[in-house]
């Protein structure tokens, strides 16, 4: 799955490299117009492109599989009889999902940087504010962006974990989680539901742009952290409640 994610920036880079015409300013996905001047932007374009679908999808697969996958294999009963301990199992599974979220975001960024530097020039990056920063700091900012995006996905991972405890069919849990990710983004785009927006786990997904301003605005990082923390607490709590009492019959 990580390889599939890493393919996103690679595909974008190849498409830009092979096309004869540069995209004009403001055309295509954000940052695409800068790519031919500075390969590092591939990482950002890749991130923007992956956030609405690819990243949530892979995280849904990873998180939906946590408990339901074990139940589906029938290995859940052996893990519990080992005994793994239900709380411990849940904690380990969520920790693995967290690692996956971060790894997913990092692999998009890393693949973007690698393919970008292979196919294009690499130079100082222009921030959204119009200021220019050195390559070294650019890489640091990209790393922060990847961390931000990874963090953004933790709430979804917690939801996936909870859904995963509800069923023995991993595909069902994965699909339900992915659908929720899409629904949340759709709701976030309906102006009629403005009151709901700050509570949607996808609300700050594109907020990583705040890390590309000068000076860095940490507001959305903090707001996002708080929001994701809330989702983690609520849904891990639900997952615990469900899983601690669940009859394992698979």
């Amino acid at each position: 799955m990580l390889a599939a994610l890493a393919a996103v920036p690679v595909l974008i880079a190849l498409a830009v490299r092979l096309s004869s015409r540069d995209p004009g300013p403001g055309q295509g996905p954000p940052f695409l117009d800068r790519v031919s001047q500075n390969g590092l932007f591939i990482a950002l374009t890749g991130m923007v492109v992956s956030i609405p679908l690819f990243l949530p999808l892979t995280v849904s697969v990873a998180a939906g599989d946590t408990i339901a996958g074990e139940a589906g294999h029938g290995t859940l009963r052996y893990l519990l009889a080992a005994p793994a301990g239900r709380v411990r199992l849940l904690a380990v599974k969520y920790a693995a999902a967290v690692v996956f979220c971060l790894a997913a975001a990092l692999s998009v960024a890393t693949a973007g940087v690698l393919i970008g530097s292979a196919l294009f020039d690499v130079g100082p990056i222009t921030l959204l504010s119009g200021d220019t920063i050195s390559v070294g700091e650019s890489l640091l900012r990209l790393f922060l962006v990847a961390c931000y995006v990874g963090l953004s996905l933790l709430g979804l991972a917690a939801i996936g974990l909870f859904i995963s405890t509800l069923t023995e069919v991993p595909v069902g849990a994965m699909a339900a989680t992915a659908v929720l990710a899409v629904v949340s983004q759709i709701l976030d785009n309906l102006p009629q539901l403005e009151w709901l927006h700050p509570w949607l786990f996808s609300h700050h997904w594109l907020g990583f742009a705040d890390l590309l301003r000068q000076p860095i605005s940490w507001d959305s990082f903090a707001a996002n952290g708080l929001l994701q923390g809330g989702y983690i607490v609520v849904f891990c709590g639900l997952a615990y409640s469900r899983f601690a009492t669940k009859d394992v019959l698979s």
């Binding site: 300013p25 403001g26 954000p30 117009d33 800068r34 923007v48 222009t126 921030l127 959204l128 504010s129 119009g130 594109l206 742009a209 705040d210 301003r213 605005s217």
Partner: peptide
């Protein structure tokens, strides 16, 4: 601060700059 973009006005003495990241202008 716009979504994935920014519009800046910078004034320093008599110099005034407008910058739009979307247009990169």
């Amino acid at each position: 601060m716009d979504r994935l973009a920014e519009r800046d006005v910078i004034r320093n003495g008599r110099d005034v700059w407008f910058y739009s990241s979307k247009q990169n202008a």
